[in-house]
């Protein structure tokens, strides 16, 4: 099954490489350069997994995470960070992020986490359907 993935990061080079690498695995992904752009994309499409950079100019990752969780509670978010900030990590996890990946991210590791996040989203959606 196809996974709808959105990558949010302000580093153009990183985004380009990631889009290519996912593409090679036959997993097309969308990208956004900022938190604001991510929210616009989220309004237009139902994403399964969002990979979100913590440190971005303008609206930062945690602020974006909060808004994503409020608008699309079923969408799972994997936080991505270049610097291991414990405080940001704690806040991210406590705000409902699915997982945390340190840059430079091992691609297979990231892929595995995306799959796990997607599995959770599906389980969650199924549980909601049964509960409703």
């Amino acid at each position: 099954m196809d996974i709808n993935i959105l990558l949010v990061d302000d580093e153009a080079d990183f985004v380009e490489t990631m889009v290519k690498r996912f593409g090679i695995r036959k997993m097309p992904i969308d990208s956004a350069k900022s938190g604001q752009e991510a929210l616009t994309s989220l309004a237009a499409k139902d994403y399964d997994v969002i990979i979100l950079d913590v440190r971005m100019p303008g609206m930062d990752g945690l602020e974006t995470l909060k808004l994503i969780r409020a608008r699309a509670p079923l969408t799972e978010v994997i936080m991505l960070t270049g610097h291991a900030s414990l405080e940001a990590g704690m806040q991210g996890m406590n705000m409902g992020a699915y997982d945390y990946v340190l840059k430079p991210a091992d691609f297979d590791d990231l892929l595995d986490k995306v799959r796990k996040a997607f599995e959770r989203k599906q389980l969650n959606a199924k549980a909601r359907k049964q509960g409703a």
Binding site: H83, A84, L86, G89, N94, M95, D99, Y100, L102, K116, E119, R120, L123, N124, A127
Partner: peptide
Amino acid sequence: LDFARKREPVLQDVDVVRIIEDMARLVDKE
């Protein structure tokens, strides 16, 4: 308010060692 909210746990097969290792890496630098 956030932690008073009851979230139904979603069960998955979890590799505990990896989770600990991942979180430990986050703590390592600090």
